[in-house]
């Protein structure tokens, strides 16, 4: 994320200046959007979550330490907003993702990858976020840890638990490719 932000701009943001807030929004909008999109995997949902994330940032501006990275702070807020969205839509029972942007695999893995996708969406949101970023987006553990404000060890442990849960879910469906 771009993070050469003028200290004066950050100070004005903390004081509630909406012009400063808009300037920060314009500067970080695309990066935050792409980060959220990585987690929620749907552009229109990512737009809603982005609005929610910047609103949360504005509401929490008094707690922002302007000597620290705005980009990292914003990414944490965006990650939490995306995770809250996953929590709100998490399937309880058989639920199939309806997504137009998935490129259909051409191999015999079609049904299998759908089952894997379905099982993945059933992971607890805190595991799903970490597993999406680590296994699908292949982001470095340190970056994920920073975005979630967690130790790297916890991120590794969540990835391990996500893979184990995914295997268990697939085994329940008798999927052994």
């Amino acid at each position: 994320m771009p993070d050469e932000v003028d200290g004066e701009l950050l100070r004005r943001f903390v004081q509630g200046d909406q012009d400063a807030f808009e300037s920060l929004f314009r500067q970080f909008e695309i990066d935050v959007f792409q980060w959220i999109l990585r987690i929620v995997r749907d552009a229109s949902i990512a737009e809603d979550v982005l609005v929610d994330a910047f609103w949360r940032a504005y509401r929490a501006r008094a707690r922002f330490d302007s000597s620290r990275s705005f980009g990292a702070w914003m990414r944490r807020i965006a990650t939490n907003a995306a995770r809250d969205h996953l929590r709100s839509v998490r399937p309880r029972t058989g639920w199939v993702a309806t997504r137009d942007d998935i490129v259909a695999p051409t191999s015999a893995d079609l049904g299998l990858s759908e089952s894997v996708g379905h099982a993945f969406r059933r992971l607890p949101p805190k595991l799903q976020v970490v597993a999406t970023l680590a296994l699908i987006e292949e982001r470095p553990y340190a970056e994920i840890a920073d975005a979630l404000d967690l130790p790297v060890g916890t991120v590794k442990s969540r990835v391990f638990r996500a893979v184990r849960a995914l295997r268990k879910e697939l085994a329940c469906k008798d999927i052994q490719p």
Binding site: I30, E47, I102, I136
Partner: peptide
């Protein structure tokens, strides 16, 4: 591989 097949990478998108 199956995860990548189910969830293709989303690159370079912007808000509509």
């Amino acid at each position: 591989m199956l995860l990548h097949s189910a969830f293709p990478k989303l690159e370079g998108q912007k808000p509509s």
